[in-house]
Amino acid sequence: MRTWVFLLGGMVVWTVHFFGAYGIASIFPERVLIAKLLAGGLTLACLAALAWLARRSWAAFNRKEDAVSDWIALLASLLNAVALVAVFWQGFPALLA
């Protein structure tokens, strides 16, 4: 279980961010400014979380334990990076929409 949480942690943060943002936009459909501020705050928080996760997974990768753990750490790092880009994009609507 810990392996999977470590591997998929970044994508889980993305999920939290996406559904959080969707929830915010649905709760405040009229008060756009509040929604944008909340979504923007959520985005920053998630980006920070992802940065932390990415650092951790990258450190794990550099520890060079054995082939399997390294591979999982590498994949986790990449997934964290993907999540970072996706959450970053997900933050655009708060700025531009």
Partner: peptide, 12 residues
Amino acid sequence: MPRLSVGFFAAA
């Protein structure tokens, strides 16, 4: 749909 929601789905 509200514009903001639309934006989130477009980004995803």
